[in-house]
């Protein structure tokens, strides 16, 4: 049977010059949690952007291969159409609308329901049952939320959209270990209770493989290892390179922060 999302041998080029993905394939079955792991610059975010159509906004293009969602080819579809079709992308760095309130952030996400039958109200309550803290803060500007709360809001917006697949780009980014655990527990709960499939992009391999059923590891724009989560966790190479205690974690963080800042600026100009 065809999986919910099928990525077939795609190649992606930015600015018609820089090739970032080189024949990447992966699949996400309906209702499953699949982890996509890899180090900085491997091309994880690029993979998600190719699927959600946001790639075009950064002057990137899928030059070869195919992407199918619910058995239909989605290459080149407008991003808002894909969202309305049930594919929600939670972008790297959360990207909450900082000068909108928590509630308004959720209202913005109701645009994903355009042309679909669900009522908006139900969805708000659903978000607040998973994230009671958001209800307390619903009149507050999202920019003043803590990092953890912003991640909750980013997930809350995804819930509003009632998607069949949520693609999460590094939900653990910049969060304290305890909070990471809390967020991942909720992700697993959403998957179980709502039946939503999740494609989880992470650098934190240990927590991801703990909730995922299947994992892919990519390097340099290609998948290098894949397999069921337990099998990857037991694999020696994976243990050495991805599950070992990262001595340079702090360094990597700060480099990434610089990169984020640059990317945001690109957007604004």
């Amino acid at each position: 049977m065809e999986a919910l999302l099928e990525i077939d041998n795609i190649e992606v080029v930015y600015n018609k010059a820089v090739q970032v993905l080189r024949g990447l394939s992966l699949r996400v079955p309906a209702g499953a949690i699949v982890a996509l792991l890899g180090s900085n610059g491997a091309g994880k975010s690029t993979t998600l952007k190719s699927v959600s159509g946001l790639l075009a906004l950064e002057d990137g293009a899928v030059t070869a291969g195919d992407i199918r969602f619910k058995s239909r080819s989605m290459k080149g579809a407008a991003p808002e159409k894909l969202v309305r079709d049930g594919l929600f992308h939670v972008m790297e760095g959360r990207r909450v609308f900082e000068d909108l309130t928590v509630e308004e952030n959720l209202i913005a996400a109701t645009y994903a329901l355009s042309g679909r039958p669900q009522t908006f109200r139900d969805s708000y309550e659903l978000v607040y049952t998973y994230f009671p803290r958001l209800k307390e803060r619903r009149k507050q500007l999202a920019g003043y939320l803590s990092g953890g709360e912003q991640q909750m809001l980013a997930l809350g917006r995804a819930l509003i959209a009632r998607p069949e697949l949520i693609m999460l780009d590094e939900p653990s980014l910049g969060l304290a270990p305890l909070l990471v655990e809390e967020i991942f527990t909720i992700i697993a709960r959403i998957n179980r209770e709502q039946g939503t499939a999740i494609l989880l992009v992470e650098q934190n391999a240990a927590v991801s493989l703990a909730i995922a059923s299947y994992g892919y590891i990519m390097e340099n724009g290609k998948i290098v290892i894949d397999g069921p989560a337990e099998q990857l966790t037991a694999n020696e190479d994976v243990q050495e390179f991805y599950l070992g205690v990262g001595g340079q974690e702090g360094e990597a963080r700060s480099y990434r922060d610089i990169k984020h800042y640059k990317r945001r600026k690109r957007w604004l100009s």
Binding site: L54, L57, A78, E80, V83, H89, F97, Y111, A161
Partner: peptide, 9 residues
């Protein structure tokens, strides 16, 4: 970009 990802046209 985030607006696009919410389904806003």
């Amino acid at each position: 970009a985030a607006a696009y990802s919410m389904g806003i046209n």
